[in-house]
């Protein structure tokens, strides 16, 4: 009977507890906190568009960093490796299971998009973020590291589909490339942090090419539309809060 508590501890330590609706605990100053509070998380089966699995890898040749070092650094500096203009407001407690992060992304044309992510899973060698309703994609993305032939390999693997028809059109026109460039940049930046000029490899598979017409209604939560509509109110609210805080 001695192994049961250990197994339970490992499961409870690494997986998020059940959540019916997301709750943002701390919102850093300057963050646009829209489209997260009260949203449900959605998996790769709930969205509208084609289901894609994309894997990006960079080998940290020449670095002595172990996979656990890579993941520790990645968790602690997650948004620093992103392309400029995109912000990930991690919870104060860091990337831990069950925590909710706010994302402010810069869409093509400079349009802002506010959404969030739930930390679904985290251990010493990987962590997984899951999207809420209204996010561009429905699914999750896993960041991991492993050792191969004496060097650490950092990996990003997403399994997701566009959340609604508007996003799907965006993906077909330009967003796949934007997304792939985003994660290439991230992995190159991560490799550079370890002193490596990384060559990123990408593999992608369309797991399900069908559109799920039953999910057309997801457009109601579309975070791009709601951010555009909600931004003026959010900015006015921020000004009043600053004035109040300032005395």
């Amino acid at each position: 009977m001695s192994t049961t508590p250990d197994v339970k501890t490992r499961e409870e330590a690494h997986w998020a507890q059940p959540v019916s609706k997301l709750k943002v605990s701390d919102v850093p100053a300057g963050a646009i906190n829209l489209n997260v509070e009260g949203r449900q998380v959605v998996g790769p089966l709930q969205g509208f568009g084609q289901l894609w699995q994309k894997t990006y890898r960079v080998r940290l040749s020449g670095s002595k960093a172990a996979p656990t070092d890579v993941i520790k650094t990645w968790k602690e500096n997650f948004p620093k490796f992103w392309p400029a203009g995109n912000k990930f407001y991690a919870p104060l407690t860091g990337i831990k299971p069950g925590e909710v992060a706010v994302l402010n992304l810069s869409m093509p044309g400079g349009m802002p998009l506010s959404t969030g992510m739930l930390v679904l899973y985290a251990d010493d060698e990987s962590f997984t973020l899951m999207t809420p309703q209204g996010h561009m994609e429905s699914g999750w993305i896993t960041f991991s590291a492993y050792e191969e032939d004496g060097a650490a390999v950092a990996q990003v693997q997403s399994i997701a589909r566009a959340n609604d028809p508007m996003y799907e059109i965006g993906f077909m026109l330009f967003a796949h490339k934007v997304q792939e460039d985003f994660w290439h940049h991230t992995l190159r930046s991560l490799a550079a942090h370890f002193g490596v000029e990384g060559q990123v490899q990408m593999f992608k598979t369309c797991v399900d090419s069908r559109w799920q017409w039953s999910q057309v209604k997801n457009i109601w939560h579309n975070a791009a539309i709601r951010t555009a509509l909600g931004m003026p109110g959010q900015l006015v609210g921020n000004i009043f809060r600053r004035q109040k805080d300032g005395g």
């Binding site: 499961e11 690494h14 998996g43 251990d123 999750w140 399994i159 797991v207």
Partner: peptide, 21 residues
């Protein structure tokens, strides 16, 4: 099954997508 991590859950999603197809 002793343990499933998030990559394991993604593998189950892959099977589910194949089954639905």
């Amino acid at each position: 099954v002793d343990y499933i991590n998030s990559t394991g859950i993604a593998l189950i999603v892959g099977l589910l997508a194949q089954a639905r197809k």
